[in-house]
Design a protein around this nucleic acid. Structure first.
Length: 562
RNA sequence: GCGCCCGUAGCUCAGUCGGAUAGAGCGAAUGCCUUCUAAGCAUUAGGUCGCAGGUUCGAUUCCUGCCGGGCGCGCCA
């Protein structure tokens, strides 16, 4: 047998246990894959419980009519005699009510560390999602104003999720859907025109201070605009304002390290017949009907609350028309998995979006995935800031970044599951930036970097070490944390949950800080360099690599000094 | 009224397929720098996991009902 990678260990251990079950209880287990499926095997939170733990004995207790501890002992006994298991296991223990704890030997630990140092920035990536073509749509703000705090959360989440999915081999297009047509755009144009002419802005128009600034900018650059007829002025203001505002959004997102592969124009759906084709397809499939002069899609056939209007009775298009054509476009472009990151205020869309997919003949559970991002509340001076465009109390993406920086903003927004409503305490982020968890993680990285730099200055060669020497609790704990990285990134990708990465990286940083406090890494004074120093340097180096890899998945920088 | 999400320490929140004494950060108290970054570490305090049932060897986790909070239920976008 060749070198066993850590990734395989879990599977291999599972296989060994399955073999044991079949040998020990032939009347209960005959089929190998069935036995293996039954076996739970996870990484315990507590290092005292080994590198892997299984509750299989507890689960089987009833079926075998034996006490859990007895079952555990029997499995342990069998595995201890197994030659294959002993290749990578140090020892097996039965603990608590009947858990079996497995401890890896130092050979498998050193293999892990060496693999990290060998793979470098690629460690943690896999081909788990190889061949998947994923469209990931997020932010998708109207180009009629600045990006607010909600958009900021989706920007961080979407961008990080794209990085995580790509790391697992998926082909991902991150996409921004520009709502550049319809009533809102016209209101935008009217608002700009009114502001430019010092006239009252329409009641349902756009009011923020940015509108008058934008109007002023347009006037300065295009003085001739006033010569146009009022109706043409609106169009001109709308189009020029749109360009400026969209460019502004692009700049802000760029500065937030959020990149999009595709900026998709809603208007374009109508300029090259994509809407016509999508509608024709739905009609041909028999899901479209006309009632009271309006054209409807029978989404209730596919679980939606009510049918949706595509074309209104006055002949104008409903917003939903674009949704249909847009989904069709994504499928035509070859995306099999289409992820929508929606704000909680749009969660009512789930039913109709799924219905579009189903009506088209797709599998709504497979081809469409919708992630709901709960809204972000803001606390300032101990009270909640009510967000209102009218009152000018909205906090924009760029304001947040100005206050706390890109790293802290991204990291904070990524720490929580998207479906968790979160409260940002601006005062805390503003006044106490040093206490933000992001600095805790970055500090660990910077610390290691400086130590390795010192080691190089001292001309210490730490390419080889002896992992048998690492027998302290803090050292073992750090190694076992490193071993968990791959599984964290994988589950993060599979569950579409980026927050697992920051949580993990914080645990890893904590494990390192404890290790650093208790274990001297570099030789002191006149002390000669020995294998323990070298091995600890290797361990520190691997830790730095994983912190860096984790932060990269979040789009957060890993500073060399702080 | 119906649908989705949330309810875990004083505050902000983690907690994979149900598992071992329920965790982290902040805040509070106390220790630790003549040696690698104290933006760190250690110890202490702080909990009826919203409430009540059910499923089972075992429930913060799954099911039902209730209470409380957020959001959504247009031929608006």
């Amino acid at each position: 047998m060749g070198q066993v990678t850590n990734d395989d260990l879990q599977l291999q251990l599972q296989r060994e246990v399955a073999i044991a079950l079949i040998a020990l209880y032939p009347t209960t287990f005959s089929d190998h894959s069935m036995a293996q499926q039954l076996i739970s095997l996870d990484r315990p939170k507590d290092v005292g419980h080994g590198d892997f733990a299984s509750s299989i004995a507890l689960a089987l207790s009833k079926k075998l009519a034996k006490r859990p501890i007895e079952v555990a002992q029997e499995i342990k006994g069998y595995l201890e005699k197994s030659d294959t298991a002993s290749i990578f296991l140090e020892k097996i223990e039965v603990a608590g009510p009947g858990f079996i704890n497995f401890y890896l030997n130092s050979k498998s630990q050193s293999n892990l560390i060496l693999e990290i140092l060998h793979s470098k920035e690629n460690y943690g990536s896999s081909d788990l999602l190889q061949g998947e073509k994923i469209n990931l749509e997020f932010v998708s703000a109207n180009p009629t104003g600045p990006l607010h705090l909600g958009h900021t959360r989706w920007a961080a989440l979407g961008d990080s999720l794209a990085r995580i999915l790509r790391s697992q081999g998926a082909q991902v297009a991150s996409e921004f859907y520009i709502n550049d047509r319809g009533v809102q755009m016209d209101l935008f144009g009217q608002s700009l025109q009114a502001a430019a002419l010092n006239q009252p802005i329409p009641e349902d128009g756009y009011h923020g201070e940015y509108i008058s600034d934008l109007a002023k900018e347009i006037l300065e650059k295009n003085p001739d605009i006033l010569k146009l007829s009022p109706a043409d002025q609106v169009i001109e203001f709308r189009d020029l304002g749109y360009q400026l505002q969209l460019q502004e959004q692009k700049n802000v997102l760029e500065n937030f390290r959020t990149s999009f592969d595709i900026w998709f124009s809603e208007k374009s759906l109508y300029e090259n017949d994509e809407f016509e084709q999508a509608l024709a397809r739905l009609k041909a499939q028999g899901h479209v009907y006309i009632q009271e002069g309006a054209t409807w899609l029978r989404t209730t056939d596919f679980g939606d609350d009510k049918d949706r209007v595509i074309m209104k009775s006055d002949g104008s298009l409903a917003y939903f028309a674009s949704d249909c054509a847009y989904y069709d476009s994504k499928r035509e472009r070859g995306f099999t998995i289409n992820i929508y990151l929606l704000g909680a205020d749009h969660h009512g869309y789930v039913g109709r979006l799924k219905a579009i997919a189903a009506a088209r003949g797709d599998d709504p559970d497979k081809n469409i995935e919708i992630l709901i991002g709960q809204l972000v509340k803001i606390m300032e001076a101990g009270v909640e800031v009510k967000l209102s465009k009218r009152a000018g109390t909205i906090i924009t993406l760029s304001e947040l970044v100005e206050k706390v920086g890109v790293d802290a903003a991204r990291y904070t927004l990524l720490r929580y599951p998207s479906e968790t409503p979160m409260v940002l305490d601006v005062d805390l982020l503003r006044k106490r930036t040093n206490e933000n968890p992001v600095y805790y993680v970055q500090y660990a990285h910077a610390r290691i970097f400086q130590i390795l730099k010192s080691a190089k200055d001292l001309k210490i060669d730490f390419t080889n070490g002896n992992f048998d020497l690492l027998n302290q609790e803090v050292e073992k704990n750090l190694i076992s944390k490193l071993a968990a990285f791959r599984e964290v990134v994988k589950s993060s990708a599979q569950l579409r949950e980026p927050h697992r990465v920051p949580r993990y990286v914080e645990e890893l940083a904590a494990a390192f800080h404890r290790f650093y406090t208790e274990c001297r890494i570099l030789p002191q004074g006149d002390e000669l360099v020995n294998d323990l120093h070298r091995t600890r340097l290797i361990l520190a180096n691997a830790t730095m690599q994983i912190i860096k890899n984790g932060l990269d998945l979040l789009g957060v920088s890993a500073p060399e000094r702080m």
